[in-house]
Design a binder for these strands. Structure first.
Lengths: 220, 220
DNA sequence: CAATTTTGATAGTAATACTATTATTTTTGT
DNA sequence: ACAAAAATAATAGTATTACTATCAAAATTG
């Protein structure tokens, strides 16, 4: 069974999943983006890695900024799918919320059935690079083009749960987007600026912290 | 009275506060960084704005990345100073913490005595651009050079307060760095992706949210 | 006011982020 | 199986960026 994850079609010129070379661009592109980081990543280097040419990659993606947006969008698509799985057929709302928080702030389990092989790599890229994709002067245009629908859908779905559990809580969207962003930020800190975080515990402190916030704030 | 804010000397080649043209680089640089954003900002454009040359600016800053780090470091220096003011001579620890949260997550009051004129502009730059300064392959070297000491000092100071108030709370640093980062992120969302946040209320929702988190999590 | 430092003016370079052109290869419909 | 269409490779070229270098003029300083 192969799950198809939706990525906004405004992000590519030609669907990279529609050809062998397109898939190679994605596979090797993810790897190279991780290895070099967004700044040093170029289509020229990627072309060399896949034994193709710059011009070919430019036929799939307008520029490296859009390529990064594609990867991030893909990641949010995967999470959206996992969120669905984790809440389907769960009758208790609080359990649904708890499962959602685990999906959004925990680490993916690669041994799990139906897990998506690229998820961990994409997550690393989101942690390292997503700020550069978001914080540009083009953000408003891109938002108009629906680039952030996957992300907004996630925040909306989970904050609806919050509203059902505690209709009086005044900041449901802020709470959820905070927990999502914080999870990625703290994972970055734990590698590079460990004094800004608490990572000592044996379990996943980021996920535990997120559950704790939800419990205390919503008084569960 | 003029307060001098400490900025790590590894961030400049020649102290920009030591000359008229250096101060012009800072003043106009802040403005241009806001207007153009980090990507489109260049030393050439800045040189034109101050009627000087690229070469002169390069004598003060190695590159625009370091210039941005300088501005961010300056901002954390200002906050560190304001944090001191807001907690000095406050006997109650909980009140100290509350004041600290206001400084870290609220908006500066430009009408206040001793307020620093550049703070609001620097804050905007931190909100828009600080991710680009932090999330690079150089972060570990820069951390070694003490670039993040101002920031780490803030997190350390306030999380010490948390520890005194609730010694059993397991994630004090994570809590504080989360609130700081979240405040900036939510202010970005409220302008560009309002559906990810809650900004409807008349008061400053970001600051109120932060106080609420602290109260609930530490059961004050 | 001579010596030193700083700045201005100008030039130059390697890399980046593309666009354009044309030949070759691959895919596709019949 | 094969002609037509589409995709890719190979190559070249351009504007901009992010610097470095040089040297004369201006400003500062002891």
């Amino acid at each position: 069974m192969n799950i198809s994850i939706q990525v906004s079609s405004t992000l590519y010129l030609k669907d990279p999943t529609s050809s062998e070379i397109g898939l190679k661009i994605l596979r090797e592109g993810i790897q190279l983006m991780q290895d070099l980081g967004f700044e040093a990543f170029t289509f020229k280097k990627l072309a060399q890695n896949i034994q193709s040419t710059e011009a070919t990659i430019y036929r799939y993606f307008e520029n490296k900024h859009n390529f990064l947006l594609y990867l991030i969008n893909w990641y949010w698509g995967i999470l959206s799918y996992r969120l669905m799985l984790a809440t389907a057929n769960v009758p208790d709302l609080k359990q649904q919320l708890s499962n959602s928080i685990s999906v959004l702030t925990g680490l993916p389990d690669p041994s799990q059935l139906g897990s998506i092989e690229e998820e961990m790599q994409l997550k690393q890229i989101v942690i390292q690079e997503s700020g550069k994709a978001l914080h540009t002067k083009m953000v408003d245009d891109e938002n108009q083009n629906g680039i952030y629908l996957n992300y907004k859908h996630i925040v909306s779905t989970v904050s609806e749960l919050v509203k059902k559990i505690d209709p009086s809580f005044p900041y449901p969207e802020m709470l959820i987007s905070n927990l999502i962003e914080n999870a990625n930020q703290q994972r970055f800190f734990s590698v590079h600026l460990p004094r800004l975080t608490n990572t000592s515990s044996a379990d996943d402190a980021v996920e535990s912290f997120s559950h704790l916030i939800i419990q205390k704030v919503l008084q569960l």
